[in-house]
Amino acid sequence: MNRRQLIPLAVAAPLAVLPLFLNAYWIDVLNSIGIYAMLGLSLNLIVGHAGLFNLGHAAFYAVGAYTAAIVNTTFGIPVLLLLPVCGLAAGLFALAVARPIIHLRGDYLCIVTIGVGEIVRIALVNNLFGITGGSNGIFGIARPSIFDLTLRTPLHFYYLIWIFVALTVFVFHLLEYSRFGRALNYLREDDVAAEGSGVNTAHYKLMAFVVGAGWAGMVGNIYAAKMTIISPESFTFWESVLMFAIVILGGSGSMPGVLLGAFLIVGLPELFREFANARMLVFGAAMIAMMVFRTQGLIPSRPRIYRIPAVEKGEGRA
């Protein structure tokens, strides 16, 4: 058990000193990876744990990012203070959207989430209520500052983002091993049985959806803070596809898997820059190959083992 607890430390320590050896470009790649890792983890709750087929996660990410941008540029409230507001906005939006559709079967839910993603993007492009800036997006978001330090360089954001990744991992780990997490896994495996055992499936599915979406909204805030300009092009269907691929490729329901998935999905296109215009071709081929050779994802989630002291060794395992 002790060894397992050491693993996060063994991952975190090199990550903490890594930027000292990298140039601004690679640090920024890691920043991008960090943002997608958080998005992946939040989507993992919805797809990996609750088993809801969501291909429109970018919508909630967009709601968070635009909330941050609009409030910051009109009222001048520092971006990072808006983190809870953004989470709340995205969560409430998800609640309103998901309530009537949460009972849909897998693939029907998939197209509805794609639809929601597209509706949000089109609304942003069409300058909804005159506050989203149309396809120009919103610019001039104030750079965030912590105490007296204004976050400016990729290195600053590296620490901001990866501390937030660590926080995300921590929170979702707690969630996974809570009553809530157990209920989700139960209903993913068999929602009829779960319902029969008194789990309110619709409620838990909805909660998973709202929590995942709310977290994506907070990531949207960080993205807005980092870019200082946001536009609808950053929240297309393609972004949702990337997040989805991160979860499934890494290993649905497995946090180390999702982190690795983020490294591959965001990092590989950067590594493939040398292939010039063939880089997305190679990337597509790599996606197929990884799926074909690791059908369960790169690091599949393992079944949980509960030790029952009263059972004799060798008897309780079927």
């Binding site: 601004a24 470009y25 920024d28 946001i230 092009e233 950053s234």
Partner: peptide, 18 residues
């Protein structure tokens, strides 16, 4: 390659800067 999207472009710019 900026891929025609702001995020990829930001990375392309960092890469060129280095």
């Amino acid at each position: 390659d900026d891929g025609g999207d702001p995020r990829t472009a930001a990375l392309a710019a960092q890469r060129l800067a280095t």
